[in-house]
Simulated assay, not measured.
Amino acid sequence: MLKHFARLSFALFAVLTTATSSVAEERVIRLGQVGLSFYAVVGGIVQEVLEHDGYKVEVTTGSHGDIFPKLGAGEVDILAAAWLPDGHAPLYAKVKDVTYIVGELYGDARLYWAVPDYVPADLVRSIDDLKKPDVAARMDKRIRGIGATSGLMVGASKIREAYGLDAAGYEVIPGEATDWIANFKQAVAEQRWLVMPLWQPQWINAAYKVRVLDEPKGIYGKGDTAVLLGHESLKGKLSPETLDRLKGITLSIDAVTQMDLWVNVDGLAPRDAAKRWVSANPLRKD
């Protein structure tokens, strides 16, 4: 009888443990984000909402070319963020059928090329101006940027070809974000002329004086909305209330730029920058 009771107790313990483990697993949300600081602060805002509602959040960071396939495969549940309709269009097309837009995070997201404002505006106002002999003679022809799979750099290669910059000796060089920023800082310190693939929201726009170049061919598009993308399975993992709260996150270019500035100038961790912003701009009233 005692042995029978022991077997029942063990069986009950196993069932309860499995059930508890299952519930715990259901409360884990895998958040994906591209490995750039302005994505990380937005991911921090999403994390604030999820953790406030009792979910455990596991963050996966990678390049554009890494993180979108992980979302498509269900290896991450939610992605902060995708730029649509243009910025991430080729990457989104591959996951569109298994994802849905949870909500819009901020609008007026833009890709462009810029120069430091000490480059004379009467000489360089548009990308076409980079071909002028007197400009090309002074401009650093190594156009450095971020990861090759980003919309910024895919578009940069198209711009180089469309505007005939290759014939003028310009190169588009993808690389690590840290090297891209270091090159820009060094150029400013030396007052060296350079053209830089850039975007908003981005902390450099607030910390330095740069001038956006006209790009009349519109290769980067007319601007995007940054959206929160969920894998289709996310609907079964989050409560309707939490989904509504995620949908209700409303940021702005200025807000994301400010958080990005706190990270890159003030030295805050991205999550701490998100917490600072939320403390001054509560996401929910309760």
Score class of each variant (00 low, 15 high):
247 K>V: 01
103 G>P: 01
264 N>W: 07
51 E>H: 00
9 S>W: 13
87 G>S: 04
216 P>A: 00
116 P>M: 09
56 K>F: 02
177 A>H: 09
111 L>D: 08
276 R>L: 14
255 A>E: 02
256 V>W: 02
170 Y>M: 09
162 A>R: 08
123 L>N: 01
59 V>G: 03
5 F>Q: 12
163 Y>E: 04
281 N>W: 13
46 V>F: 07
127 I>R: 10
86 D>R: 09
60 T>Q: 08
192 R>C: 06
60 T>W: 01
193 W>P: 02
253 I>V: 10
85 P>I: 04
11 A>G: 03
52 H>I: 01
223 G>F: 10
3 K>C: 01
73 A>E: 15
118 Y>L: 05
3 K>E: 13
232 E>L: 07
107 G>A: 12
42 V>W: 04
209 K>I: 14
168 A>K: 11
132 K>N: 05
271 R>S: 06
76 V>E: 12
271 R>F: 08
220 Y>W: 04
221 G>R: 02
20 T>L: 06
31 L>Y: 05
81 A>D: 04
223 G>P: 11
21 S>K: 00
85 P>K: 04
233 S>R: 15
278 V>W: 00
194 L>K: 05
215 E>L: 00
142 R>W: 03
45 I>Q: 01
271 R>I: 09
90 P>V: 12
282 P>S: 15
109 A>W: 02
26 E>S: 05
104 E>M: 05
256 V>S: 02
101 I>H: 02
164 G>Q: 05
171 E>Q: 03
132 K>M: 07
271 R>L: 11
134 D>R: 11
181 I>H: 01
284 R>P: 04
251 L>Y: 11
94 K>V: 14
57 V>H: 08
221 G>K: 06
124 V>E: 12
10 F>C: 11
169 G>Y: 13
124 V>I: 08
32 G>Q: 13
217 K>M: 00
49 V>N: 13
45 I>F: 09
216 P>W: 02
85 P>F: 03
47 Q>F: 02
1 M>A: 12
120 P>V: 13
55 Y>A: 03
6 A>G: 01
235 K>C: 04
274 A>R: 00
240 P>F: 06
125 R>E: 15
240 P>G: 07
270 P>V: 07
236 G>T: 10
212 V>G: 01
87 G>P: 02
172 V>T: 13
76 V>K: 13
57 V>D: 10
127 I>P: 09
88 H>T: 10
122 D>N: 15
108 D>A: 15
26 E>A: 10
149 T>Q: 15
187 A>D: 02
217 K>Y: 01
140 D>E: 11
271 R>A: 07
248 G>S: 15
189 A>P: 00
175 G>F: 08
234 L>Q: 14
59 V>D: 00
1 M>K: 10
36 L>I: 13
57 V>L: 06
152 L>M: 05
25 E>Q: 11
39 Y>C: 03
261 L>I: 10
22 S>P: 02
210 V>N: 14
207 A>M: 14
191 Q>C: 03
231 H>N: 15
135 V>A: 11
237 K>G: 06
